[in-house]
Amino acid sequence: MTVSVKEVAQRAGVSVGTVSNVLNHPERVSEAARRKVTDAIRDLGFVRNDAARQLRAGRSTTLGLVVLDVRNPFFTDVALGAEDAAAAAGLSVLLGNSDENPERESTYLDLFEEQRVFGVLISPVGDVGERLHRLRERGTPAVLVDRVSADETTSSVSVDDVEGGRVAVEHLIAQGRRRIAYVGGPFAIRQVTDRLEGAQRAIDASPDAALEVLTTHGLTVLEGRRIGEQIAARPAARRPDAVFAANDLLAMGLLQALVMQGRVRVPDDVALIGFDDIDFMTAAVVPISSVRQPSRLIGETAVRLLLAESEDPSVERQRIEFTPELVARASTGVVAEDQRNSGA
């Protein structure tokens, strides 16, 4: 049963206004009165309705963050960065996982709008430009995370995914690989498309190299394993000699399928590189090369842009795009610096 402020006041023998001051302006209340109220709160198990208070004030202290896949450590790190920056500003973060599902994504945006959150950070499945525009018209700023705004009407924080794809495949070509497969999907996700575009640019600059696209239903370990099993089942002459996975979870699944069956050696037969550089890449049975993006910094920067827009809704929209970094490891035939330092 919910305990009201009035019941707390009756138990403490003070006015409702005194209870309100203890909760919101304790410096206005004597020590004796504060003690009576806090004792009553403890005895009755009173929990303040902070959401109602925020609605009365017209301003929430909660940010809404929607990510593509909360199981992906990249998005976990983005959320941690956002949480750190939000906490420094006296805000908290409410996390929603779209699971790469547009309907679920829309449900979270509905919820955040109903809750009148301070602002919205989102790594969208598809095009949410119009929806974010409506949110902004109603006073809720929004920032794209790990995605660039197509019409530049929404601030964004991301890495250059096209450049990352180019760097990944150029690295494979530099290792002598020429039959390269790109594994990723669905292509409604902009990052998947942009990384493929970068891969194709690297292929176009190397006339003797070819690119095969193997489409997945999601960016998960299980989907990577499924594609890996298909590759392993091919005759050796028809296999790619290198694979660029659209993210590290796919790369992990690919490695599991190739290594467990024992018919394909990584990197001898097939070199492998992922994207994101999550922590697990160094712990794999064959440490996996990857394209690193600054996940925590992306989350922190997105909150900073959101705060700026909240202070001044007319502020110029910003597009902050970090440069990805190649991290080469054993899966592409390189002994990486982190492996040397660990004695691997």
Score class of each variant (00 low, 15 high):
172 L>T: 05
160 D>C: 07
156 S>T: 09
167 V>P: 02
154 T>M: 09
166 R>C: 08
147 R>H: 14
166 R>A: 13
150 A>N: 14
169 V>N: 00
145 V>S: 07
173 I>D: 05
164 G>Y: 03
171 H>F: 15
168 A>V: 02
153 T>P: 08
145 V>I: 14
148 V>E: 11
147 R>E: 07
144 L>D: 01
152 E>W: 09
173 I>H: 07
145 V>W: 04
165 G>Y: 00
157 V>N: 04
148 V>W: 07
166 R>E: 13
153 T>G: 15
167 V>H: 02
163 E>M: 11
165 G>V: 00
149 S>R: 01
152 E>I: 13
168 A>G: 05
148 V>H: 13
169 V>C: 08
145 V>R: 01
163 E>H: 15
146 D>K: 02
167 V>M: 15
157 V>T: 03
172 L>C: 10
165 G>F: 00
160 D>E: 08
144 L>K: 00
158 S>R: 01
147 R>S: 10
151 D>N: 09
155 S>M: 03
164 G>V: 02
161 D>N: 13
173 I>P: 01
151 D>W: 01
152 E>C: 15
157 V>D: 02
158 S>P: 06
148 V>N: 11
169 V>H: 00
159 V>N: 10
167 V>C: 12
156 S>C: 15
172 L>M: 10
144 L>A: 06
148 V>G: 10
150 A>G: 09
166 R>L: 07
147 R>G: 14
171 H>N: 06
164 G>P: 03
147 R>Y: 06
165 G>R: 00
156 S>R: 01
157 V>A: 04
156 S>V: 03
148 V>F: 15
150 A>W: 12
163 E>G: 13
152 E>T: 12
153 T>S: 11
161 D>Y: 04
150 A>S: 15
156 S>L: 07
155 S>V: 05
161 D>G: 13
171 H>R: 09
169 V>L: 06
154 T>C: 12
172 L>Q: 02
157 V>L: 07
154 T>Y: 06
173 I>Y: 05
168 A>R: 00
173 I>R: 08
149 S>C: 10
168 A>Y: 00
164 G>I: 01
160 D>P: 04
166 R>Y: 09
171 H>V: 08
173 I>M: 13
169 V>G: 03
170 E>Q: 13
165 G>M: 00
157 V>C: 06
163 E>W: 12
159 V>L: 11
171 H>C: 10
